[in-house]
C-alpha cells in the first residue's frame, strides 16, 4: 500500500482555509495524484474555527472519515493556538506550519510539547505587501507545498498561475499579487 499524505487545515471562517485545501487538491490532481479535499462543515460564521482536510496519494483513496493522525497541520490563524488542539494526533515525523511573525523556536512553547518539525511563515506581511489586503491562504498553500514536498515546486507554481488565471478571469489585477505572494512564501518558510 502506498503512502497517503494527510493534511489538516485549521483556520477561521472567511480566511480561505477551505479554498486553500481545494486549491491544493487541484494542484496535486494536476500532477496526476489521487486527491481528496473536504472541509468539516458546521454552522458557517465569519471568524469561527474551521477545519479542512486533504488526502493525497498515488493510489485510489477509499477512506472517507476525517483525518485524526495527519502528516502535516496548517494553522492559518495564530490565535487558534490557545483554543484549538492543533497538534492533536499530528505525527512526530511530520510538521506543523503556522502563519505567524514569530520564529519556530518562539512559537514551539505554545504547541503542547509537540516534538516534530515546526515551520512558520509570515503570511500576513506577505499578503499585505503583495495584495494590499490580508488573504493568508495563498501564502499558506505555498508553505505547505514547500514543507510537505507533495509536489514539484515549479509544477505547483505553473499550475497555480493557470488556476488563478481561470479563477480570477473577471479580475486579472489580483493574479499578479497572488502569484507574488505564492512565490515569496515558498522562499520565506522558516524551520525547514
Amino acid at each position: 500500500m502506498s503512502k497517503v499524505v494527510e493534511i489538516r487545515w485549521h483556520g477561521r471562517g472567511g480566511q480561505g482555509a477551505k479554498t486553500a485545501s481545494l486549491l491544493l487538491a487541484d494542484a496535486a490532481f494536476n500532477t496526476g495524484k489521487y486527491i481528496q479535499g473536504f472541509p468539516e462543515y458546521g454552522p458557517e460564521r465569519m471568524g469561527a474555527p474551521i477545519t479542512a482536510y486533504n488526502r493525497i496519494s498515488d493510489e485510489r483513496i477509499t477512506v472517507h472519515s476525517n483525518i485524526y493522525e495527519p502528516d502535516y497541520v496548517v494553522v492559518v490563524d495564530e490565535t487558534l493556538l490557545g483554543s484549538v488542539d492543533v497538534t492533536a494526533g499530528l505525527k512526530e515525523d511530520g510538521a506543523i506550519i503556522i502563519n505567524t511573525q514569530k520564529s519556530p523556536d518562539e512559537i514551539r512553547p505554545k504547541l503542547k510539547g509537540y516534538k516534530g518539525k515546526v515551520c512558520t511563515v509570515d503570511a500576513r506581511t506577505i499578503s499585505i505587501d503583495a495584495l494590499g489586503r490580508y488573504f493568508p491562504n495563498t501564502p499558506m498553500l505555498a508553505a505547505v507545498v514547500k514543507v510537505s514536498g507533495v509536489m514539484d515546486e515549479d509544477a505547483f507554481v505553473k499550475d497555480m498561475e493557470e488556476s488563478f488565471a481561470h479563477k480570477f478571469a473577471s479580475k486579472p489585477q489580483v493574479i499578479e499579487g497572488n502569484m507574488k505572494a505564492l512565490k515569496r512564501a515558498l522562499t520565506e518558510v522558516k524551520g525547514l
Binding site: 481545494l22 481528496q36 485510489r60
Partner: peptide
C-alpha cells in the same frame, strides 16, 4: 449519496 462526505468532498 452521502451528504457532505460525498456531496461536498472533491475527489478524482
Amino acid at each position: 449519496y452521502d451528504g457532505f462526505i460525498t456531496s461536498h468532498a472533491v475527489e478524482n
